[in-house]
Every structure is written in structure tokens, then in C-alpha cells.
Amino acid sequence: MGKTRFMIAAIAAVLCTSGVASAETFIRIGSGLAGTYPIVGAKMAEIINENVEGVTATTVAGGTEANFALMSQGEIEIVLTYGFLTPRVQAGKGSLGVATPQARHLMTLYGAYFQPAASKDSGLTALADLEKGSYRIWGANATSIFYPMIASALEANGTSFDKVKAAGGTVDEIGYSDTAGAMQDGRLDVAFFAGPAPYSLLMQIENKPGFTLLGFDEAAGKAYRAALAGTRMRELPAGTYEGQTEAVMLPYLMNEAVISADVPEDIAYKITKALVENVDKFHELFKGAEEIQPATMRSLASVETHPGAVKYYEEAGIKADD
């Protein structure tokens, strides 16, 4: 009898422990490999961990489309991405061809200038001139979020990867974080950056080798906006970078956080509430992060917003775009 009572007590202890473990919710945030995403992702995890009871948030490094693929497999709950990419990947039209039907808008974050930069030594002043010589450009891997940005930029300016190669040039697929160093070492003539302005990676090459921003004219800007939904054109003022004597018109792309529809409504509600009510903690992370504001978190939503997030936004009086 005593042995039976002991076994019952042991089973009860196991069930109790199991219940505690199952009550813990894990939120994994796909926060990219370089640039501002790892910084934002880390801050999001910190805010969630400090303010949402029963939830443990961590970040996962990886390419954006790879992170979406992990979301489709239930291995990531939040992905930081550019808004133009989300509906493509949701429908399985991204470079990996993996559909992520559970992708839902969580919040619009901040914008980023798309900044094509040519080494001063190259003499280039426009993307359209890439066919006039044998230039070495960064093209990103086909699975990178930068690939559609770069391909669309070239096409909007009347050129392409194939035309660059036909002119004797090369297209390099090194990692994004290595592009500034490659320009400094003379291995690249043109690279493409996306982030706030001034941007840390570009500031690395202001003096060595120095660079020229390759702006967009009106026709190129219109073509780029048509190619990448949600993109705007914005003037980058003269003097943003050392040696930049003229204003330059560049694409401005919006970043967003996407959450899986598999995240329970009450958890998504609590996460949204925590991030909105601690939004000021993002503002000192980098120049441009001050754009993260409650009033614009529902603007330019690229896909349907998670119902848990909608519930909080409506309670807080935060309206969606008309």
C-alpha cells in the first residue's frame, strides 16, 4: 500500500511539473544577421521577458526568408522583415519557395534608406552606367532579403545582373556584413546598403575608399515603387555623409515585425501591449529608431494583422490605415 501511495505521489509530481513546463510560452524572434535587425530583436526579447509573465523570448540569427521558413515549420514565432517581402513569402513566391500562410502583421517599425554606393575610385555616378565598364558589384545571395531590392534597383535603372556580367563585370554574393570591408579592400566597386542614414556600415568607408551614393531619378523611383510594394522615395540631405555635397533621392523601405498566427491571441495581445507601452526603449538604439511610434504601428500593414494585436490596438485607440 505504501509503495502504491509513493507511485501515485510520484506520478502527481511529474504531472504537476509537466503542467508548469507547458504553461511557459517560448517566443523566438528571427532577427537577421547584420544591420539593425539583431539590435531591434534583442530589445524586443528584453522587453517581452521583463513585461510578459510566462513568456520567454529569445533571438534567432538567420536570413530573413530562412526565418520565414522556420516560422512555417513552427520553429520561429516573430520575424523582422521588410514589408514588401511578407506577402511574397506568405504566398510562397519568395526565393526559397516556402509558403508561410501563418504570417500576420504585428507592427510597423521604422524605415530604411536603400543606399547604393560606388567606390570613389570607380568613377560611377549612376546605376545605369554599370554597363559602361567592367565593375564588381555586390548582388547578395538569391535567398537574401537584399536580392529583390538590388535586382529591382538595377531594373528600375535600365540594367540587370546579366547586363553587368555581359559587360565584363562580376556579381559577388559575399555576406552583407562583409560588403564594407570588401569595398575598403578594393574587392567591390558597388555595394548596396539598407538602414538609417548616416548608416554605420557606410560610415566605415567614408574615408577609405570614399563613396558616391547612386541616386534615383523620377522614372527609376516610380519603377522601383511599382516593383516593391510599400516603398516610398525620400531625399537624403546633403552632408549626411562626409563628402556628400548634394541631396540624393533614394528608396525608403518600411520594416515590420511579423508574428505567427499560431501564437495564441492572449499572448499576441500581451506582447503587443508590452512593446507599445515600452516603445521609448527602442528610440536610443540607432538613428531612425525614433520612428517606431504607436500611432504608425498599424500603417502600411502588408498582410492581415494578428487578432491579438488588433485587440490591443483597438483598446489603445490606435487606428489602422483607411
Rank of each mutant, 00 (worst) to 15 (best):
F114C: 03
L15H: 04
A34T: 14
T4E: 12
G317K: 07
D129V: 07
V98A: 09
A197C: 03
S260R: 02
L70V: 00
A45F: 02
I8Q: 11
E277L: 04
F6W: 13
R28E: 04
H306V: 05
L228P: 13
S302T: 07
D189F: 12
A156F: 01
R88S: 10
R5P: 14
I174F: 04
S299H: 11
D185V: 10
A126N: 12
L228Q: 05
P196C: 01
T56Q: 15
E53S: 15
A301P: 13
A13F: 09
I145M: 14
K270V: 09
M183G: 09
T64S: 10
A247H: 10
L33C: 02
F146L: 07
R225H: 05
Y147P: 00
P237T: 13
S18E: 01
S200T: 14
F192Y: 00
L300T: 09
D280F: 02
G123I: 13
G221W: 02
E277G: 02
K120F: 00
F114V: 07
Q115C: 11
F211D: 07
L130N: 06
S119E: 03
L127D: 08
E290D: 15
R298F: 08
L154Y: 09
Y113R: 12
L33I: 14
A42V: 05
A226W: 04
T17A: 09
V190R: 14
E206Q: 12
N255Y: 05
T159G: 04
G181Q: 15
A69H: 03
V164Y: 09
I259M: 10
Y241G: 06
T296P: 05
A151K: 14
L275P: 00
A153H: 12
V276K: 07
G215N: 14
N67Y: 00
V258Q: 04
T36V: 04
M44Y: 14
N278M: 08
L236P: 00
I76Q: 02
F114I: 06
E291R: 13
M297N: 10
Y199L: 12
G195P: 00
E304S: 11
G2W: 14
S18H: 06
V276A: 07
Y82F: 15
R88I: 06
M249H: 10
A128M: 00
A126G: 06
T56V: 14
A309Y: 03
N207D: 15
A227P: 15
Y313I: 02
L33H: 01
G97S: 08
V60M: 08
L188K: 01
K208R: 07
T4K: 09
G32P: 08
N141A: 01
